[in-house]
Simulated scan of single mutants.
Amino acid sequence: MSEKVLSVEDVTMQFGGVVAVNNLSLEVHKGEIVSLIGPNGAGKTTAFNVITGVYAPTNGSVEFEGKNIISNYPRGKMEKLYAGEHKGKYKKVLEPTPDKITKLGIARTFQNIRLFKNLTVLENVLIAKHMRMKANVFADTFLINWKEEKKMKEDALELLRILDLYELKDEKSSSLPYGKQRHLEIARALATTPSLLLLDEPAAGLNPQETDELTDFIRKVRDQFHLTVFMIEHHMNLVMDISDRIYVIDFGKMIANGTPNEIQNNQRVIDAYLGVAEDE
């Protein structure tokens, strides 16, 4: 087994008396494409929000590339309200903000596309590139950082070439077909030079042809940039086609994990999730 890139340990996310994620533990290894699936409201995006620093978990920890980056335990009013497991196991508080998580090497996209609609394709990617900028305000004021700016633009254009978006570089992002907007959102995430890419329902709103193109695009991104991909997705054809392993959660709790073939034949998963789609 290759090295662990991401390790989520006993993570519980509780909002007041509502437990959205309940004692979630999972691993993603280097070079894998791993999917997290489950019914609507199962806690998938909440888990992503914990991993990316949007929420501090109520309890549990997250490790990235062997380093503990997120950790928390029930404190204050939550000590009495806490309804999860492993209450006394964690005693360290690490609550990095999303920008710090991004700088560590974790990038993500969102279920609802969040491009800068009035900016061009190139400008959208350049904004992400600035996250890695080394120059300070003083240097920016006196144009000392022009070499860094030039290099960022060159790198952004090369990224667009690799991803077959170069010809669209001067187009406003809002003018792109929906499928290309999805590709651009992934390109913008790649501009932060991550080693782990989180995709939150990348096929949402795509037609069958666009979904097939996205499947090839994700594989290309993984292989071209030597990335690890962790993905939430409802489109089962995409999930089963592209995933090395799959985790399934229901009501915030893990109910199964395994290869696509194992998941397709897991009766508990069929009853909780896959069977619903077939009945409809």
Results as ranks from 00 to 15, higher is better:
residue 89 K to W: 06
residue 123 E to F: 04
residue 128 A to H: 09
residue 113 I to K: 09
residue 97 T to H: 12
residue 95 E to D: 11
residue 107 A to R: 11
residue 140 D to N: 14
residue 132 R to T: 06
residue 113 I to V: 11
residue 140 D to V: 00
residue 95 E to K: 13
residue 115 L to W: 10
residue 105 G to D: 01
residue 133 M to D: 11
residue 124 N to I: 06
residue 128 A to N: 05
residue 88 G to A: 09
residue 102 T to Y: 08
residue 105 G to E: 05
residue 137 V to D: 02
residue 132 R to L: 12
residue 118 N to F: 10
residue 132 R to S: 05
residue 135 A to C: 12
residue 144 I to W: 13
residue 102 T to A: 15
residue 101 I to S: 12
residue 120 T to C: 01
residue 90 Y to N: 07
residue 140 D to L: 03
residue 95 E to A: 15
residue 121 V to E: 01
residue 127 I to D: 02
residue 124 N to T: 02
residue 117 K to M: 11
residue 98 P to N: 13
residue 100 K to I: 07
residue 113 I to N: 06
residue 129 K to D: 07
residue 122 L to N: 01
residue 102 T to Q: 11
residue 96 P to I: 05
residue 139 A to R: 10
residue 109 T to K: 11
residue 132 R to C: 04
residue 123 E to Q: 14
residue 101 I to Y: 12
residue 144 I to M: 15
residue 144 I to F: 13
residue 89 K to S: 03
residue 91 K to Y: 12
residue 98 P to K: 14
residue 121 V to I: 06
residue 120 T to P: 10
residue 126 L to N: 05
residue 141 T to Y: 09
residue 121 V to D: 00
residue 144 I to T: 04
residue 141 T to Q: 07
residue 84 G to A: 06
residue 102 T to P: 03
residue 107 A to S: 15
residue 124 N to K: 10
residue 92 K to M: 08
residue 141 T to H: 08
residue 123 E to L: 03
residue 90 Y to E: 06
residue 98 P to A: 07
residue 123 E to V: 05
residue 135 A to G: 14
residue 137 V to M: 09
residue 115 L to F: 08
residue 94 L to R: 10
residue 138 F to M: 07
residue 136 N to I: 02
residue 131 M to Y: 14
residue 86 H to Y: 15
residue 142 F to H: 01
residue 96 P to W: 09
residue 132 R to K: 14
residue 144 I to K: 12
residue 131 M to G: 07
residue 84 G to T: 08
residue 99 D to G: 01
residue 139 A to M: 13
residue 132 R to H: 10
residue 137 V to L: 13
residue 123 E to N: 06
residue 95 E to P: 00
residue 108 R to H: 09
residue 99 D to F: 00
residue 103 K to M: 03
residue 134 K to C: 08
residue 106 I to H: 10
residue 123 E to M: 09
residue 127 I to C: 06
residue 89 K to R: 10
residue 106 I to Y: 06
residue 144 I to H: 10
residue 114 R to W: 08
residue 139 A to H: 09
residue 132 R to Y: 03
residue 143 L to E: 10
residue 110 F to L: 06
